[in-house]
Design a protein around this nucleic acid. Structure first.
Lengths: 129, 129
DNA sequence: CTTGACCTTCCCATTATGGGAATCCCCATC
DNA sequence: GATGGGGATTCCCATAATGGGAAGGTCAAG
């Protein structure tokens, strides 16, 4: 099937499908006219990528997960290790963001938020330390 | 003072200081030899930027905050509005990441994590939907 | 006058995604 | 057979923020 149909069926944009190909994640056949030709197996790969990306796995991780996925003899421990490392990264970033949000909320709570120029938020950003 | 000293004193790398200049956030004088020359006021700006970036304000927001900071007649409401919008963005991203982390943790919890190939994580990514 | 530390600009890379141009292909309709 | 529309191809560019590194100019100490 064409890249357009593959995009529709996989939920991955044609643009990104081509990109994933340059990254070696999917390797469709080529028709004599140069068009890419996707088989069901390719579709499955694209869906796999989409799900992994929805969980914010970086493409490097997706590549590893795909390799494990294709390996019928993989050890589940390998997958788990990648997933848990990713979980840790996600949680650490999420925590950092929530900490920033909390500080800002705190500052904003002490900001009148009216027409006066007084503002603890700017005061904080202004600090020399 | 030189960019190197400004970098040391502000905690912003020389590379980034030059970048912020291309973005119009800081505008040091130039010495006859072409070297940038930073005054105390420039240092204060750089520190302001560093603090704002530490709170993950995008440079576009930093630009607005700097404008308000320089405006002695600003209304605190303007600052607050920017800050609260940023808080909302941070919290929404943090929530999304924690949701992803939670799903993955859940999947990982049901993954043996041993030498067997069985792995619900891959099973989930494989789904056609 | 050389050496080393510092400065300048310019280009490139990162991550994942998309926009857009120029060109080509295929199919259907007149 | 010509034409037109929709889709395909490749290539370049842009995003946000940061850094690496090259090629060359400057300055101060020895």
């Amino acid at each position: 099937m064409n890249i357009g149909e593959a995009a529709r069926l996989s939920g991955v944009s044609a643009k990104m499908i081509r990109h994933y190909e340059t990254q070696g994640l999917v390797t469709p056949q080529r028709l004599p006219n140069g068009y890419r030709d996707y088989a069901e197996a390719d579709l499955a790969v694209l869906r796999f990528i989409r799900h992994a990306r929805a969980l914010a796995f970086p493409l490097e991780d997706v590549r590893k997960l795909l390799a494990l996925w294709r390996d019928r003899n993989r050890a589940s421990a390998d997958v788990r290790q990648i997933a848990l490392a990713h979980v840790a990264a996600l949680e650490s970033k999420a925590q950092a963001m929530q900490a920033m949000a909390a500080s800002l909320r705190h500052l904003a709570a002490h900001c009148h938020g009216d027409a006066r120029p007084d503002c603890p938020i700017l005061d904080e950003l202004e600090k020399s330390s």
